[in-house]
Design a protein around this nucleic acid. Sequence first.
DNA 1: CTAATGACGTAGA
DNA 2: ATCTACGCCATTA
Length: 110
Amino acid sequence: MAAYETIYAIVRQIPVGKVATYGQVADLAHMPGRARLVGYALFRVAPNSDIPWHRVINAKGEISESPERYGSDYLQRSLLEAEGIQFTPHGKISLQDYRWIGQALLSQKT
DNA sequence: CTAATGACGTAGA
DNA sequence: ATCTACGCCATTA
């Protein structure tokens, strides 16, 4: 039980071929500014879960890396490419093209 | 109860 | 464009 459940719910709503930033998920999860909690939540969820954690990236449009992930960042990139997401030569993702627009944000969108 | 942790975000230089 | 520093606060031991 935890606010993390909300985060998981948001991540599960990310459609294939799209990506969301931690801040994006945090905002949709009613936790603006708690991007760290989102990232930490995904760390706990682990790739064994049915949650598309690989569709969540940082605000820079890149995949976060951490020595504790044992190279799971490589796996994440592989999964994203499998969904048709392109990576720039710099190893980044075109956020403005693949950024998932949450339904709550659709109303806010100009 | 306290202490430590953490896949981030933003601002300033 | 890159780098540093601080804040954010739920979860776990």
